[in-house]
């Protein structure tokens, strides 16, 4: 290709930046796949989306979940999503921004959901993740604890767990920890 390089180099010397048809960076394949995921979302009424940076930044968005069943009925929980340019090779990074008394979500908002970490596969999508999060509220699970105390209470005494969840959601203390109101 050296002849071609030579021609190009000479053209460049002659042209001195006529800047005609300057290519602009294309969207990454990850952004495009995410665009597809999001435009095909099919969510239940209990899950809504927010795009804090406007309609053109899909890589950072928020999901509001209002469980319509189970212990967490009536609460509103905000999750932030950060999606990498090599999505779906890598799972989205998800945090719970609402402080919640939950066996699978710790007080810093880390979420224990298998498809976000060890079981993520590129065939999964944003819809699957949101459904996965939704199910954490209808079926909290004491076998994968991130909040050790909450998991133990759920396992040993579901009635107390239920009243703890109510107290936390209406804004109050569970043990030493204060939970702001989220109903």
């Amino acid at each position: 290709m050296i002849k071609l390089f030579k021609v190009k180099e000479k053209q460049r010397e002659l042209a001195e930046n006529t800047s005609n048809g300057v290519p602009v960076k294309k969207q990454s394949a990850g952004e495009l796949r995410l665009h597809k995921d999001i435009s095909e979302l099919n969510l239940p009424k209990s899950c809504t989306m927010q795009f804090p940076n406007g309609k053109d930044d899909l890589m950072n968005f928020e999901v509001l979940i209002r469980p319509d069943d189970g212990y967490y009925l009536g609460g509103t929980f905000l999750f932030s999503f950060h999606v990498s340019p090599i999505y779906p090779h890598e799972a989205p990074k998800v945090k719970c921004k609402t402080k919640v008394y939950h066996p699978n979500i710790d007080l810093e908002g880390n979420v224990c959901l298998n498809i976000l970490r060890e079981d993520w596969k590129p065939v999964l999508n944003i819809n699957t993740v949101i459904y996965g999060l939704y199910h954490l509220f209808t079926e909290p699970n004491y076998e994968d604890p991130l909040n050790h105390d909450a998991a133990a209470v759920l396992r040993d005494n579901p009635k107390i767990f239920e009243s703890n969840v109510r107290r936390a959601m209406s804004g109050g203390y569970v043990g030493q920890t204060f939970f702001p109101r989220c109903m």
């Binding site: 602009v24 294309k26 969207q27 952004e31 495009l32 665009h35 597809k36 999001i38 435009s39 095909e40 979302l41 099919n42 969510l43 809504t48 989306m49 927010q50 795009f51 406007g54 309609k55 053109d56 899909l58």
Partner: peptide, 21 residues
């Protein structure tokens, strides 16, 4: 749904983006 150079021209879903586009 249509996107051009990082600008979302039209999005079928979710409702909030459909409205915006």
């Amino acid at each position: 749904s249509v996107t051009h150079r990082g600008k979302n021209l039209y999005m079928q879903a979710p409702p909030v983006l459909e409205e915006m586009t």
